[in-house]
């Protein structure tokens, strides 16, 4: 059996395993719908009573709200699986369209954050571990310790105070300069300019986490037997660090990066609301204020799916890095 076929089957199996998780999230959503007082139709229509009575009746019929609970559940699952997430009267748009509209900015923010946090975190952790207990190590460790303890929203606000209000280097909010209507590379640059502060804000905590993890992981790996073997072979410390320890030390960081994607989405709610970034988090923040629970549930569901997908990608990347992963 060739490697490629094995890997393909591995991916297929992981995809299959994702299905029950998605189903479970749908069931969880359904249970959450039952929690608030009153009829689920009230929640589904957006609590504010902005829906027409006809629509309410239609909703009740569609979700079988007069039927027993398990039938309701089936109806709910059926609707969600068909990606029918309901209608938001507040925004006069189907929930799915609303979410898809806002997906790209959030993805952009997430990808740039992950790249920055993992990239710089790994580098800093590596530097710290290579100069153990030197001033460099101490400085990096203190930076990581403080960043790890700082609330995201506060970092965002303070960055705005310093870099936007006082220095005027970066815009305070939004994703593009309003009314500028840039096109092509100008637009890309404009978005990138807006992206800097939100990315730094969102990545700081994770950057600190990966720095600490990478440092600890490097130290742990450098005590392993295979490192002694490498020394006994006559390799230089530099080669031992980069060819042997580094790759082994990266594995736990990668695993952690996968685990953290979910919390990254949570963090983006805060960061997007601080920077007025027009993504899913901002949408969630607005839905929260409008008490549009159905929209919130929709965002919750789709971001959970996003996490499942990212985890899948991480698993596949991992299978390239670690030959011990069984792909049968």
């Amino acid at each position: 059996m060739s490697m490629a076929a094995n890997r393909l089957r591995y991916v297929a199996r992981r995809l299959l395993q994702a299905i029950p998780i998605i189903l479970a999230i749908i069931v969880l959503n359904f249970l959450l719908l039952q929690l608030p007082e009153g009829d689920a139709a009230d929640v589904l229509a957006g609590e504010a009573g902005s829906a027409t009575p006809e629509y309410m009746a239609q909703l009740r019929a569609k979700f079988g709200l007069d039927e027993p609970l398990h039938i309701q559940l089936l109806a709910y699952v059926k609707n969600i699986v068909q990606l029918d997430l309901g209608y938001s009267f507040r925004n006069n748009m189907p929930v799915l369209d609303l979410i898809l509209d806002r997906l790209m900015p959030t993805l952009l923010l997430m990808v740039s954050t992950i790249l920055l946090a993992v990239g710089v975190g790994v580098l800093l952790g590596l530097f710290a571990a290579m100069g153990l207990n030197s001033w460099r190590d101490n400085l990096i460790s203190i930076f990581a310790l403080v960043s790890y303890a700082t609330p995201l929203f506060w970092v965002g606000l303070m960055l705005i105070v310093v870099f936007s209000i006082n220095l005027g280097w970066f815009p305070t909010s939004g994703m593009e300069t309003i009314g500028a209507f840039y096109e092509g590379w100008d637009r890309v640059l404009d978005i990138a300019h807006h992206l800097v502060l939100p990315t730094i804000t969102l990545s700081l905590f994770y950057l600190a986490l990966y720095t600490r993890l990478m440092r600890a992981s490097m130290l742990e790996q450098s005590g392993m037997d295979y490192v002694t073997t490498a020394r006994a072979k006559g390799l230089t410390e530099r080669r031992i660090t980069f060819k042997h320890i580094l790759r082994n030390a990266l594995l736990p960081v990668l695993t952690m990066a996968g685990v953290q994607v979910g919390s990254l989405i949570g963090g983006s709610v805060i960061v997007e609301s601080v920077f007025g970034w027009p993504g899913l988090g901002m949408l969630a923040f607005k839905a929260l204020f409008a008490r549009d629970l159905n929209l919130l549930l929709g965002i919750f569901f789709l971001s959970a799916c996003l996490v499942v997908i990212v985890n899948l990608i991480v698993d596949i990347v991992y299978s390239f890095l670690d030959p011990r992963i069984e792909m049968r």
């Binding site: 037997d225 295979y226 073997t229 490498a230 042997h244 082994n248 670690d322 011990r324």
Partner: peptide, 8 residues
């Protein structure tokens, strides 16, 4: 087992 690098 431990004396060899598992990733190489």
């Amino acid at each position: 087992m431990t004396a060899l690098n598992p990733l190489m």
